[in-house]
Design a binder for these strands. Sequence first.
DNA 1: CATGAATGAGTTTTCATTCAT
DNA 2: TATGAATGAAAACTCATTCAT
Lengths: 197, 197, 197, 197
Amino acid sequence: MPKLGMEPLRRKALVDATLKTIGDHGSLEVTMQEIARCAGVSPALAFHYFGSKDQLLIATMRSLLAQLNGEIVPMLRGAESPRARISALICASFGDDQFAATTVAAWLAFYVAAQRSDETRRLLKIYARRLHSNLVHALKALCDGQKAEHVAEGTAALIDGLYIRRALDAAHADVESAKALVEDYVTTQLAAISSKA
Amino acid sequence: MPKLGMEPLRRKALVDATLKTIGDHGSLEVTMQEIARCAGVSPALAFHYFGSKDQLLIATMRSLLAQLNGEIVPMLRGAESPRARISALICASFGDDQFAATTVAAWLAFYVAAQRSDETRRLLKIYARRLHSNLVHALKALCDGQKAEHVAEGTAALIDGLYIRRALDAAHADVESAKALVEDYVTTQLAAISSKA
Amino acid sequence: MPKLGMEPLRRKALVDATLKTIGDHGSLEVTMQEIARCAGVSPALAFHYFGSKDQLLIATMRSLLAQLNGEIVPMLRGAESPRARISALICASFGDDQFAATTVAAWLAFYVAAQRSDETRRLLKIYARRLHSNLVHALKALCDGQKAEHVAEGTAALIDGLYIRRALDAAHADVESAKALVEDYVTTQLAAISSKA
Amino acid sequence: MPKLGMEPLRRKALVDATLKTIGDHGSLEVTMQEIARCAGVSPALAFHYFGSKDQLLIATMRSLLAQLNGEIVPMLRGAESPRARISALICASFGDDQFAATTVAAWLAFYVAAQRSDETRRLLKIYARRLHSNLVHALKALCDGQKAEHVAEGTAALIDGLYIRRALDAAHADVESAKALVEDYVTTQLAAISSKA
DNA sequence: CATGAATGAGTTTTCATTCAT
DNA sequence: TATGAATGAAAACTCATTCAT
C-alpha cells in the first residue's frame, strides 16, 4: 500500500536503521539485508532511495553529525559566558546519546572508514574543525590566540581519546568522570596561564 | 627451492605483511590474498601456518603490541627520575614507528575489531592497563595516589585522542607538537597540584 | 523475467535437481554448482532458498522419504487383507521409482551421511520405524507378537539388503526377482509357524 | 632415521590408519592429513608409498576384504557338514571385528564409493561372488541347484541388510540376534523344501 | 626413507546490486 | 512506491599433490 510522501520517512527510517545496525554491530561491516530488516523494508528499497551502500553510509554519517550538532547548538545558545560555552561544548560531547556505547562504536567505525572514503573523511574533518573553532572562539576571550589554539587542540584530543577508551570498555569511564576530566583540563590550563601572567 | 626452518620466517613475513596491508588499507577488511601477495607467498600458506584469518589478525595484533613494548622498555630503563619516566612513556607512544600513519591506521582498525573479537579486546585492554600502570607508578612519586590516577587517565586519553586525530589527518599533527601537548598536560597538572598544596 | 510465487517452484526444482545429481553421482559429494546447473539457476539462489548445502540435502532427504511414503500409502489403502498389506509394502519398496538405480544410489549415500548428520540419521530412523511398524501391524494378524517382530525384522533387512546389492550391480537383481525373494521369505516364515502349531 | 625393510610396515600402518579413520569418520571424506596423522607419519609418505589417495583407498578396501576372508577361511575349514559350513559363513560375517560399528561404517562407505570407482566396485563384486559361491556350494548338498541359488541370494541379502541397519543404529541389532535371524532364514527355507518334497 | 614447504584448483558461502512487476 | 527474484563477483578455507632436501 504505497503512500504519498513516503520518501522522507523512508530515508529517515533507513538512516536510523543503519546507525542502529552499525552501533549494535560495532563496525561498518553490516549488510544491506540487516539494515533493511532493521528498518522493516526490503533491501531493494534502500537502493531505490540511496543508490548504493556507500551513499547510505554517507547519509548516516551526516545524520550522526547533525545529531551532535543538534545537541551542541541549543547548549551553546544557553551559555552566557565564554567559559560556560566551553562547558556546553564538553557537555554536548558527552551527552547521553552521543556517549552511548553504540553511538561511540559508530563514530569509531566511521573514523576507520575515513581512511578510505574521501567523503567520510571530509565530514569528519568538518566535525573536527567545527569543534575546534567553537573552542578557540570561546577560549580567545579567556587567553591569547596562540594559547587558545593549544588548549583547543588538547581539549578536542581529550574528548576523542575518552571516546575511544569508552569504545574499548563501556563500563570503564562513566559520563561524569569523563566530563570532569576535560573540565579540569581546561580549568587547569587557564589557571596556569593567568598565574604565569 | 624450499629449505628447512622456514616456519618462523614465514610467520614473521606474514604478520608483517598483514600489518602493512592493514595500514595501507586503513582497515581490517583486507583479503588473505592481498596479505599473501604482500608476503610473497600463496594464500594457502597463510592458512597453513595460522589456521584462519582471525588467527593471523590476532598474531598481528600481538606483534603490534610487542613492537610498542619493545620501544617502551628500553626508554623506561634509560629514564632516571619519575618525571623522566613519564616523558619516556610519552616519547615511546609517539615514536616514529608507532606514530607512522599506517601504524596508527592499524591501531584504529583493531579498536574497531575489538567491538566483536574478545581476543582483540583483551589485548587492547592489556595495552591500556600497562600504559596506565606505568603512568600511575611514576606519578605516585610526584603526587598523591588519587591525583596520580587522575593524571594517568588524562594522559592516556590524550595520547589515544592524538592518535585518532592523526588517523584522520596525517599532516595535521606532527610528532613534536603531539608530544609537547601531552608533556604540557602532565607538567601543568603537576604544577597545579603543588601550587595548591 | 521474474514472476511472483517462484519460491515453491524453485525449492522443488532444486530438491529434484539435488536428488538427480546425487543419484547420477552416486554420492553426496556433489557441488552446489552442479546442483544449481541441473536446476537451471545460479548457485547463489540455492543458498538464498536453503541457507546452506546441508539444509538442501536435508530437504532432499525429506523429499525422498515423502516420495516413498506417497507410494506406500495408496498401496496400503488398496490392500484388503493383512497378507495383502505386507505385499503392498514390499511392492512399494520395489516400485519403479524407488528401485531405480539413481534412487537407490541416493538412499545409500544418505545412509553414509547418517553417520555424521544427526538430522539425516533421525530421518532414516523414521523411515525404518515406519516400515517396521507397518509390517508388525500386518503380521500380528497372522501370527503372535514375538514372531511378528522377528519376521518384520527379517523382511526389512532383506529389503535393505536387496537395495544395497542393487546399488552394487544395477543389472544383477531385477525388480521382480527381488520382490519374489521377499515374498517367499514372508510366506515361508508364516508357513513354518502354522505348521509348527 | 630411515630403516631398511620399512616398506611393508609403513604400508600396513597406513592402510590400518585409513581403515580406522574411515570407520571413525563414517565416510570416505577423510583427508590424507588425517590418515597420516593417525599413522604417525607425514602425508607425503602416504603418497610416496601409494601414489594417490585413490590407490590408498583401494589398498584399504583390499585389506578389508582380506580381513574378512581371513575370518572365513579357518571357520570353513573347521566346519564338518554343509550346514555347518553355512553357519560358519554367517558366523564369520558377524564376527566381532566385522560387525564393529566402525568396520560396518567403512563397508558402507566403500559401497558408496563403488558407484564411481570401477576398482572398488570390482572388489566388492568379488566379495559378493565369493560369499555367493560359498553359500551355493554348501547349499547344493542340501537342496537342488535352483533352490540353492535362491537361498544363497536371500542369505547374502539378509546379511547385507543387517549390516546397513547396524550402520544406522549401532545399538539396535546385537550380533547374536543378527546371526539368529539369518540362521533361522536358512533353516526355515531348507525345512520348507524338504517338507514340500 | 621421510618430511617440511608450498601451492593450484576447487568448494561453500556471502553480499551488493539489478530488474521485472 | 515497493519488492521478490536472481546473480556475478569475490572471499575464506580445504585438500590432494609435488618437490627439494
